[in-house]
Design a protein around this nucleic acid. Structure first.
Lengths: 137, 137
DNA sequence: AAGCCGAGTTACGAAATTCGTAATCGGTAA
DNA sequence: TTACCGATTACGAATTTCGTAACTCGGCTT
């Protein structure tokens, strides 16, 4: 993870479809080097995945979930990751245990997710924040 | 935004490098159609950007920030988005006003961000959660 | 009903990119 | 110095993307 890697990552974060040839020109090296390094970064897990950020609905939100103390948060979060409209599931430190980041069509869809979470036996409470504005770093 | 669009988005979310030809085969249409639709989805803003999710450091965290009531959270969050290691800046509803999602090398780097936030005149308080585990939806 | 329009889809050759692989380079240890 | 190893570069082949023109199929007008 040297400076060259970081510059490549910055470019890909901004636009993951940037061709290796163009990245190479920008950072002053060859296509093959960029290709090798990107491949290595993926292998090392630095790049978790190539993906898209979407705004399919009008509404993004964080649903903070508290589960009972004797629960395996790992398996709970694994199941929640499969729920529709869920972008991320984070196990976090702090008052709550799990945070769902969701991107839904409308408030009804968000409410469905909240309900679904609350209906879960292991879930003690939820707290929802609407994401009013998102800025990418 | 029909079923075909949604299937294409699902595939791209899983791997944004999937060739149009492969997507077309999977959803049962032609390369051109996939290309047209992806282009349209980008134009409509449904796809915000092609990007990578990274784990450059060992530590991800959420820094929840409360700012003074008379402050323009918009401009504050805009500046914070430029800070190093910051992936997202969200303006949110709820007790706190802004949430920073950060990906840092170590606790020291996270602490630097917290300090930087707290030194900001407009920031009244911060609350940090470590992200112990991340699962992609 | 015939004709027409437009959005979406398909077809296909050209351009660009990715990929496989072998040669080369640079630094390091023996 | 020599040998060696990982990283980089070079280059032809395979694949993908791109530009564009033809086609399809509803719906609408006359």
């Amino acid at each position: 993870m040297d400076e060259l890697d970081r510059r490549i990552l910055d470019i890909l974060r901004r636009d993951a479809r940037t061709p290796n040839t163009e990245i190479a020109a920008e950072v002053g090296t060859s296509e093959g080097t960029v290709r090798n390094r990107v491949e290595r970064l993926v292998d090392e897990g630095v790049i978790e995945r190539f993906t898209i950020s979407t705004r399919t609905g009008n509404l993004k939100a964080m649903i903070e979930v508290t589960v009972a103390v004797d629960v395996d948060t790992h398996s709970v979060s694994e199941r929640m990751a499969d729920w529709k409209d869920v972008d991320f599931v984070w196990q976090v430190s702090g008052e709550e245990d799990i945070v769902l980041v969701v991107d839904a069509a409308d408030t009804r869809a968000v409410n469905e997710l909240i309900t679904r979470a609350r209906e879960h036996d292991d879930v003690k409470s939820t707290k929802t924040r609407l994401i009013l504005d998102e800025r990418l770093g």
